[in-house]
Nucleic acid binder design. Structure first.
Lengths: 247, 247
DNA sequence: CGCTGAGTTGAAGTATTTCAAAAGCTGTGG
DNA sequence: CCACAGCTTTTGAAATACTTCAACTCAGCG
């Protein structure tokens, strides 16, 4: 087993399971029947592969990526517990993106036909899916806006706030800080910056006492308002935009 | 009426209606009942507005945008005839993006409840919607990849190829060139470049005889292979990825 | 104890932006 | 028909944000 993340003995339950919350327990049971564990860094699906399954993340993180021929990689999105990943392209049969495990975890991999069946028989699941899709589009749009028009500082600040909100949608987190299981290099691949510039930008935010970073991406916000100003977003607004109703 | 685009007396039918193709004529009739004409540049929906309607583009182009406080605007996507726009955020009731008419045209604005009803009664529409959603995600992911990791040349080349394919999904266009109803400034807002750099980049492509540009964005490809190499995509692959089956 | 991967920092290079000025087109009103 | 206003495109020059390269530190691990 890949132990790259186990050095801190982080159990799957260290990662939030907020997404599972709204699911009726009998539906969870159905999904659990399709559950498959995955190890961090495992490539689950390659762009262009035949694929007609929908992935429901039970716990752990997935990274959705695309690459250029020269090997440069863009992380299009991260899928967190409760998120639904439909990797298929417009032809319905090949994957438009790579799906790679970011941490250890579990996912229900449901063949499309079965998924459609589930949607038909569980109106509540259909509703959740609708809202989850809107959330995905909204958060990707926010990121595209900053990818196209934002400075490095804005991109970093926004990404951190997005992670913070997705990890604890209630906005009433019990602990002052939070951990994101990604390297600075990957944060760069996510927001379109070199790892070096991510480092410098984070350092600047720390120097200005807006936040602190410890022990490989344990983040703590100190000046939440300043950070939000830099990110160009009000956290409450962002929450409404990217967190499905009912969470 | 706003005449900014009527100088060339372009009738709506100058814009492609490929999306309407797969729709049964009786379904088209239902949608036509919700049809509303729009004038170029008209703002149809503002980010944050109450909105629970789905927009089916009948003809003309819509621009989906997001703005920063400082006024900088990113065009997240263009919606072409046959495309379905669901502007709602994760809360299901407010719009996550601005929707602005790019050209004159017509769109069916269907209240969400009615839309759900249509989906239930028209399996074919449901299927189309599924594929159209996959297409939207796939093409935005391709653009994000280049926004994050591509050079100006790559972004311009990719955008032009994307427009070319979306305007004529058959890849067997009757005329050698095609027109895109956007300014260089807007192309910049779409791919994250200043209008000045869009201009320089286009000029370089023209100088290298890869394509020609005339009369406000009448584009003609001369070295399609070279352009595809610069864009980092094989047109046939891109077509499979972003054009819904059956078009 | 030496290896590996992640983070940090400085210096140099480069892609892109910004600023500014001018030229081209299009529609408008005299 | 001409002159003018307004917008888009074009081009040059200077500024800048970010990348690349390279060297070094640090922590965890075999």
């Amino acid at each position: 087993m890949n132990t790259s993340l186990s050095k801190k003995a982080r159990s799957p339950t260290d990662y939030p399971t907020q997404g599972a919350g709204p699911l009726a327990s009998d539906l969870r049971y159905l999904l659990d029947r399709h559950a498959r564990p995955f190890d961090a860094k495992k490539l689950l699906l390659l762009q262009g592969d035949e694929s007609s399954a929908v992935i429901y993340v039970i716990d752990g993180w997935l990274a959705l990526t695309k690459s250029l021929e020269n090997g440069e990689k863009q992380i299009i999105d991260f899928a967190l517990p409760g998120d639904i990943v439909d990797p298929s392209a417009a032809d319905g049969t090949t994957a438009a993106i790579n799906v790679q495990a970011q941490t250890d975890g579990n996912a229900a991999v449901v063949p499309r036909a079965t998924w459609e069946e589930l949607l038909r028989s569980w109106p509540r699941l259909y509703e959740l899916t609708q809202n989850a899709e809107a959330a995905t589009l909204a958060r990707r749009a926010e990121r595209m806006l900053r990818l196209g028009k934002g400075t490095a500082e804005m991109r970093v600040a926004y990404a951190l706030i997005e992670f913070c909100i997705r990890l604890d949608p209630t906005l009433k987190r019990s602990t002052p800080g939070f951990h994101i299981p990604i390297t600075q290099q990957q944060l760069g691949d996510f927001i379109g910056l070199s790892s070096v510039h991510v480092c410098r930008t984070l350092r600047r935010l720390v120097r200005n006492e807006i936040l602190s970073v410890e022990d490989h991406m344990d983040i703590q916000f100190h000046e939440k308002e300043a950070l939000a100003r830099i990110a160009g977003i009000a956290p409450a607004d962002l929450r409404r935009e990217i967190i499905p109703d009912g969470k």
